[in-house]
Design a protein around this nucleic acid. Sequence first.
DNA 1: CCGAATCCTTTTTGATACTG
DNA 2: CAGTATCAAAAAGGATTCGG
Lengths: 126, 126
Amino acid sequence: MHAGSRLPDDVEPDTCAAFRDALDRVGSKWGIAVIAAAGEGPIRFGELHRTIPGISRRMLTLTLRTLERDGLLTRTVHPTVPPQVEYTATDLARDLFASTRALSAWAENNHEKIAAARAAYDDAAT
Amino acid sequence: MHAGSRLPDDVEPDTCAAFRDALDRVGSKWGIAVIAAAGEGPIRFGELHRTIPGISRRMLTLTLRTLERDGLLTRTVHPTVPPQVEYTATDLARDLFASTRALSAWAENNHEKIAAARAAYDDAAT
DNA sequence: CCGAATCCTTTTTGATACTG
DNA sequence: CAGTATCAAAAAGGATTCGG
């Protein structure tokens, strides 16, 4: 019965899916920045907007909603006037952030190699 | 002199940028799957196409080119007929793949919590 | 201050057909 | 076999405006 497929049918159907799953949470353009900013303790909408350079109010709102929905952020409304809303990273988010460190470190350690590889590839294409 | 901004102006401008940088290499829909498949040793285009369910030839080609350009894959053409091309992950790619493990593990360990958080959020929105 | 609602542009991905 | 070329669709992101 043509024996066993030795192919690693499990190294990616499992691990890859999990990785993509994680990316669905922090893979958006601003996801990790928001989590990092909210990881220091409660932070208000306006502060986030100022702290994260370049983000629009719209994208900040969308990102916050998604993260809140997934249980990565808690949202607290203080019924003052004007309204005041605070966001805080959950433990789940802190774990997640910690888990991104390896990837960040890889990028920091290797971006020169990558730049070199690109340069080589690109001018070989001349 | 309103002293020092205690804000973590470095926890994200640095780490976050590096993380996004890594995502620019494995954040595409098929990037990590291709690296995983090519991490076992040389693999041919057709094999990749069969091994990775759902990928189109076009997307496979695009993904392979990007990864090759960044030095994550080596491409070897055997001038046979019909043509035969093999792709292999570089050490750089292996390190990268290893660095994704933490994130994958986080996703595997917590996808239930996330699902629960979502469910709670969604039917609170009723 | 915090956000929702609209509209628009850019980026990514996919379906299909063709080639050395 | 290993791609390329085109076209179309969808998703993500951004600019702007309005409201409680």
